[in-house]
Nucleic acid binder design. Structure first.
Lengths: 352, 352
DNA sequence: CGGTACATTTTGATCGTTCCAATCGACCAC
DNA sequence: GTGGTCGATTGGAACGATCAAAATGTACCG
């Protein structure tokens, strides 16, 4: 069996090894690898046999260096553990993989400092582009400073803070937050609700502001007044939402329904209500935002706004790929509609 | 303002640009970047100023090429959209980022073919190592053939099929599936349950076999008989689990409890039970596996086995980093204990 | 037979970094 | 004045691929 060139050698197999192994030049092997029509049928066969024999694996980094190209894309998420973003990431990876790109993952855990660090570290790997769902409070100026203008970026889900945000040439993919929250609020009003709170999220975040604006819009349109203590902030996760539940009932008049910042918050709120002996979907109406998988499985199932995160992921990837094809095109701002999904958590007020 | 070397030029800034900009050689700049003590304080300051001025970003790919090193690690998951794996991925990325590695993500969607493709594609980026949670039915032989022996790998969650599996020098991080399922079954038996089914998962998967074995072990130890139709297979997700629910009740004697393959399946089963008017936690007991976030929030909350996926992610990363430090060490097989979390979904049988 | 066309292959430089050996100036000792 | 040591810097060859241009060989034509 054993020949001079051992297939399972310890060093990495390179173009040069293959070239030596079948008496052609490196250039020819390279042409074979890229399926060039220039190379003779016979030599191609010989080379391909040798590639197999030695177990060659292509070194894309070296090729990218020489060609001044890149075959990776950085995906930076504020919270990968949130199923909404996990689905999104799956969609992104699906689409990128199909286009021959590889996904460089970075999770920031909602920390602006980590976001800076992660972006810096991923940039050193020279991604062709970036898909960023910013951490809360992330600022356009500092992001611009670390990534520069060379690397195109698609912003997802949230706007960046600071004045630099409007000038920066980034594409955007945003949910129609305002309309979504308006739909949810109108739905509750149609059920007869009058005392409706807006619950959860940080007032600083752009998506939260937009959703709150939609809520206000619907309330005003219906001629309903909004009590100041009907606006409760919380971190956008279950645990903190459950903890803040009590704040809804400190002052009179207490609300009988709540439009929540997102599903995580809504599920947390329902948990908090349960603990107080208040039955969501009977004594108190709740709506969410996102339609994550468990929204349909909670008790009661959650009325919410569907945004199909996996499809959004594919869309964000498409947007970036398109930008890579045409770097000069003007920046796009895409707003995707959301759809109201009515389930058991929304109900008329107890008096009705 | 404008000098000869424009900071926001269109070409990428390289070592050579910096060197030219402050009249030193490339080598010196390289030494500065790596914080070498060899270089004079004054020159270091000059170089650093120039780096800032031109907005230099390090090209790690070029460095890796020259040094024959790698600073990335491939993370290949069978189902990123499952919150269990999303948490796991978060943990992996946390630990790898801390060690200066970047995560190359690949999601296979439980398809063996995609797993092969993804592994092949990621390998071309020359990762220092691989963390793989295999797709169901993935075979050790073909995996070995595509990744070879050069790149170390940590297997998570499932064993690979085929005989090559035992010989291959891979580290493993596995949950104590058998003991976990045994604990759940014993818990149900202690509540007075006698007719207990094992529900969900594919009989082919190693984790499913192990959990089933734990269930059988507990049943035998208690002297209980197992009806053949108490073993229902399903895809490991909610939708299919809900669809298979009816199969539990085709033949008599019908079970009054089910040990489920995992939480996703258990939640799906509860959904299916609801639809049949059977109240889980009252008329029928259910247990899960994984303790994903929504397990505590379902109605009723799910009795399950906690495996703290984020910590597992960190652990898998640690295992791989350790292997990179000492490539010669014998392969490890780590089995992590799981903990029974009793919640409302487990109950005595209705007759009791 | 020389010239030209064509198909195939090779040579050598190059991408941005790091490594190695060599260089340079300054200083000191003999 | 020669040689040696030291700190700081440098030139040039790598790493593994690609590219442009040049070099083969072969065939055909007048």
């Amino acid at each position: 069996m054993a020949t001079d060139s051992t297939p399972h050698a310890n060093r990495k197999v390179t173009l040069t090894d293959i070239a030596a192994g079948c008496d052609v030049s490196r250039a020819t092997v390279s042409l074979v690898l890229r399926g060039s029509p220039l190379v003779n049928k016979l030599t191609r066969a010989r080379v391909e046999e040798e590639l197999r024999r030695q177990g060659y694996v292509y070194n894309r980094a070296a090729a990218n260096l020489r060609r001044r190209t890149s075959s990776s894309i950085a995906l930076v998420l504020n919270d990968l553990a949130n199923p909404f973003f996990a689905e999104f990431a799956t969609g992104v990876d699906e689409a990128l993989g199909g286009a021959g790109y590889v996904t460089l993952l970075g999770s920031t855990g909602e920390s602006v400092a980590r976001e800076q660090a992660v972006l810096g570290s991923l940039l050193e790997h020279d991604p062709a582009g970036i898909i960023l769902s910013p951490a809360e409070g992330s600022d356009a100026g500092s992001v611009l400073r670390t990534i520069g203008l060379r690397t195109p970026m698609v912003l997802f889900n949230r706007e960046l803070g600071g004045k630099a945000s409007t000038e920066a040439p980034w594409d955007r993919l945003m949910l129609d937050n305002q309309r979504g929250a308006r739909l949810a609020t109108e739905h509750l009003i149609a059920l007869g609700q009058r005392r409706i709170a807006f619950f959860g999220g940080h007032a600083g975040s752009s998506s939260c502001q937009q959703r709150h604006a939609g809520y206000v819009e619907a309330m005003k349109a219906a001629g309903l007044t909004i009590e100041p203590h009907w606006r409760i902030e919380s971190a956008p996760n279950r645990v903190d939402a459950a903890a803040q539940c009590g704040a809804l009932f400190f002052d009179a008049p207490a609300p009988t329904a709540a439009v929540c910042y997102n599903d995580a918050v809504a599920l947390g709120l329902m948990l908090g209500l349960h603990q107080r002996g208040i039955r969501p979907g009977r004594d108190f109406a709740v709506t969410g935002f996102d339609d994550i998988a468990e929204a349909g499985l909670s008790a009661p199932p959650l009325t919410t706004l569907a945004s199909t995160p996996r499809a959004r992921g594919r869309q964000a990837a498409e947007l970036l790929l398109q930008r890579l094809r045409d770097p000069q095109a003007p920046a796009q701002r895409t707003v995707v509609p959301v759809q109201l999904v009515v389930r058991g958590s929304s109900c008329p007020p107890p008096s009705a």
